[in-house]
Design a binder for these strands. Structure first.
Length: 808
DNA sequence: GGTTTATCTTCA
DNA sequence: GAAGATAAACCG
């Protein structure tokens, strides 16, 4: 009899990163299955866990029993369970983190502690104010006790055995319900009932008539609607329920994030010659149930989405499911429209803009097989489908597909892994593929499909690169070059729209003293504080530290201290000064933080309510309005100087992407790129729309620097409050790693991180570059093991990032 | 991660 | 020698 469950418990720590065995109580035998969440006793408390497998015998002799199951059916199927193990191996994360990453946040448990009277304890034994409190409630929450300042008092009672501590696991997920009512009689009885009611109860009679009439077939009616349609109130209905004439019931509903939106149904569009060529191999692979990865390399506007849609159509016809990943989808409502438009209610949407509850509901639609297609951001790659027929990753090169916290996975790798098990194709789509992907396509590891023509046969916009040093020499000190300014003005006159694009990184507005050059820095992190006009304060992006803007320089007491840099707010100010008539929409963290505001601003712009859209990289995506004929990039090279070997690649991708926003329809588009380094190949070649040459040039650079795709890299970052300690540990750690890895492997460092201190912790890093290193994972595991003690006691943290995208 | 248990400090 | 602080061990 398999009545022992091995369980991964919700304690993300090295020591607990293994399965614990529990007895399955008789009453749950057969209903507790692998992949379910359960509540288990762990030490003195109760926590959540995932059942891995059922077996006959436990590892130790006496086992505790599972307290209760948290699910009716498994939330992780067999495939996802083994995918979790794979993820753990690949990213060196805790098992529990891997499983939690695969589920919506709503399913992560919350814990709370309570005090309860021991059975034998009488109230008068306790000191004030405990008797009163326990008289009111049989349980006092830990938090409440703490807030009331009586925590030490209660804990004393606990020690004396008079009060007990109990631990509760709370499910975060709440299913949304609506109240509905049903008549408790059938239609023939209605007249009799109406007569039996007192004559003055006219409202009640009206409601009964309405309900009896409206609920044919005995379908329950929404209370809300009855109130509206019968012109009554909640209390009338309540009275009728109390009289037993109506039956009330709660019914579960999905929160619908797209409730009041209509999606116009679309049908497959005829494909161009190139599109048909590209889709053929995909369809072949679908028909043959094969796994293969395709790179769909198509210039902006070449119709990649239609290929996605028709491939999915094929997959659905075969009775299978599809996963579509898009970068931070809340930014591309247009994409949602296209999928909902084609596949209607078969589509679930998972993106960061949804509330926890909404995400949970969308996830359950997938789990219950109520949808066939999921469109979502990174984590949607874990959608619990069981019969996947295709996985599509749009804008494959986007770095948001890499999760920057544990488990540090890349959705692309997970996609390929899942597609292998499901024997289905993966399609990576991009106009500017990542070097890694394009290199694989060139080598034939991926199959390359090319779309070189724009669908409307339009030309790519003309890009002119403006040397800002030249502008400066000519005495133009503003942030707009003469050329950009002239073109802006022409657009305004013609009533056409402009998008102005500002690189945020490295140019956020900091506070600097004009006399001595002093920059206000965060006291906890080695980074300058960012000015926020909203609160007239300065904020640290890393630790959240905030302080008011000083009136005088703390260094030299000069009064010429003010904010610098080209924040979007500042650009907006200058724009209104230079072009007083222009209507501007600004999109940045400040104006888009509220839910739905992003879409609202975009819609307003699309409806022509503004002449200029000004924003950070968030506007680079999914912007597709016919009236945009000018795109301006204010400073193309800010990103170029970051300490990141992908800086050139990112610059190229970004410039290509923004330029693609201009002239997508009948009106021709123009792009102006302002830069201080016009000779840089990433800027030059982006202006020429020449990805192929950029690829060759950048590959040469990567080869020289021994970077991906020629080498794999893994980054180890150590941090500690004590600078000397972290230096010592870093030395020891890298020496150890060096001793265990092969000769051909390059180990850089240890060296201080580009941001040497965050939240008062000093950071050192070590970069490992390797071509083939079978010993790497075991070595890293040993590292984690060996430094565990200091990890636990000395406040050391080690983070390992296999294939990092953030080098800071 | 939280809790209990073992070990070390500190101070009368 | 007890109370308090800190490190180590364990959780089935």
């Amino acid at each position: 009899m398999k009545n022992v469950a091995s369980v991964i418990v919700d304690v993300p720590a090295m020591q607990t990163d293994r399965a614990y065995d529990y007895l399955v109580p008789e009453e749950w035998l057969g209903s507790i299955l692998p992949g379910m969440r359960v509540v288990v006793p762990f030490g003195p408390r109760k926590i959540q866990g995932f059942v891995m497998e059922l077996k006959e015998k436990g590892e130790v002799s006496k086992l505790k029993a599972i307290s209760e199951p948290m699910d009716l059916v498994p939330v992780l199927n067999e495939e996802l369970l083994s995918l979790g193990n794979w993820l753990t191996d690949k990213t060196l994360c805790f098992k529990i983190s891997a499983f939690q990453a695969m589920l919506p946040a709503a399913m992560k448990a919350k814990y709370e502690k309570f005090f309860r009277l021991e059975e034998m304890t009488r109230l008068d034994e306790l000191p004030d104010p405990l008797p009163d409190l326990f008289r009111k409630n049989s349980e006092i929450s830990w938090k409440a006790a703490q807030e009331a300042g009586i925590l030490p008092l209660i804990q004393k009672q606990v020690k004396q055995g008079k009060v007990d501590v109990i631990y509760k696991v709370k499910a975060r997920a709440k299913k949304k319900t609506v109240r509905k009512i049903l008549p408790a009689f059938n239609r023939d009885q209605l007249e009799g009932i109406l007569e039996s009611l007192p004559p003055q109860a006219s409202k009640q009679k009206e409601v009964l008539r309405y309900v009896s009439d409206a609920s044919n077939e005995g379908a329950p009616l929404l209370v809300k609607q009855v109130i509206e349609n019968a012109g009554t109130t909640a209390s009338t209905i309540k009275t009728l329920v109390n009289k037993g004439l109506l039956v009330e019931k709660e019914e579960e509903v999905y929160r619908d994030p797209f409730e009041d939106r209509l999606f116009e149904q679309t049908s497959p569009l005829p494909l161009t010659e190139q599109q048909s060529q590209a889709i053929k191999p995909i369809v072949d692979v679908i028909d043959q149930n094969l796994h293969r990865t395709f790179l769909l390399y198509g210039v902006t506007g070449s119709g990649k989405t239609e290929i996605y849609l028709q491939s999915i159509q094929r997959v659905l016809e075969e009775g299978k499911e599809a996963i579509v990943l898009v970068p931070e989808i809340s930014l591309t409502p247009q994409m949602v429209h296209r999928f909902k438009g084609r596949f209607g209610d078969d589509v679930a949407v998972l993106h960061s803009g949804l509330s926890v509850g909404e995400k949970y509901d969308e996830w359950r639609k997938i789990q219950r097989k109520e949808v066939k297609v999921v469109v979502g951001a990174r984590s949607a790659i874990f959608a619990p489908f069981e019969n996947i027929g295709i996985i599509i990753i749009d804008e494959e090169h986007e770095t948001s597909y890499k999760q920057e916290e544990n488990p540090r996975y890349h959705a692309r790798d997970v996609a390929v892994q899942r597609a292998e098990t499901h024997k289905c194709p993966v399609i990576l789509g991009s106009a500017t593929p990542s070097l890694e992907t394009f290199a694989r396509a060139s080598k034939g590891v991926y199959q390359l499909l090319t779309l070189s023509k724009r669908m409307n046969d339009g030309d790519l916009p003309h890009v002119s690169v403006v040397d800002m040093r030249e502008e400066l020499r000519n005495g133009n000190r503003s942030m707009f070059s003469q050329e950009l300014f002239d073109k802006l003005q022409t657009r305004l006159e013609k009533g056409e729209q402009t998008v102005l694009f500002l690189n945020r990184r490295g140019h956020s507005s900091f506070i600097m003293c004009r006399d001595c050059g002093f920059v206000v820095q965060c006291p906890n992190c080695d980074i300058s504080l960012t000015y926020h006009r909203f609160s007239n304060g300065m904020k640290c992006h890393y630790c959240g530290y905030e302080e008011a803007v000083p009136n005088t320089c703390p260094e030299c007491t000069s009064e010429h201290i003010r904010y610098f840099g080209t924040g979007t707010q500042k650009v907006e100010e200058e724009l209104t000064k230079l072009l007083p008539g222009a209507r501007i929409i600004r999109m940045d963290v400040d104006t888009t933080s509220r839910k739905g505001s992003h879409e609202k601003l975009l819609t307003a712009f699309g409806e022509g309510k503004a002449d200029i859209l000004l924003g950070t990289q968030m506007i680079a995506k999914g912007l597709d309005f016919p009236n945009i004929t000018l795109v301006g990039v204010l400073s193309a090279d800010t990103m170029l100087h970051l300490p990141d070997f992908r800086a050139a690649e990112k610059t190229f991708q970004l410039l290509t992407q923004v330029s693609g926003r201009a002239g997508r329809h009948t009106l021709p588009g123009e792009v102006v790129v302002q830069t201080y380094t016009p000779e840089h190949y990433s800027i030059e070649l982006a202006a020429e729309h020449d990805y192929d040459r950029f690829y060759l040039q950048e590959m040469a650079m990567r080869k020289m620097g021994a970077y991906p795709p020629f080498y794999y890299i893994t980054m180890i970052t150590m941090s500690h409050e004590d600078l000397m300690k972290v230096v010592a540990i870093a030395e020891k750690l890298s020496a150890f790693v060096r001793s265990r890895l092969s000769e051909s492997t390059i180990i850089l460092g240890p060296a201080a991180s580009p941001i040497p201190r965050i939240k008062n912790r000093y950071r050192y890093q070590c970069l490992i570059k390797y071509k083939r290193e079978p010993n790497l994972t075991p070595t890293l595991k040993t590292v984690l093991d060996q430094f565990q003690q200091q990890y636990a006691s000395g406040g050391l943290t080690i983070s390992i990032d296999v294939n990092p995208y953030m080098m800071m």
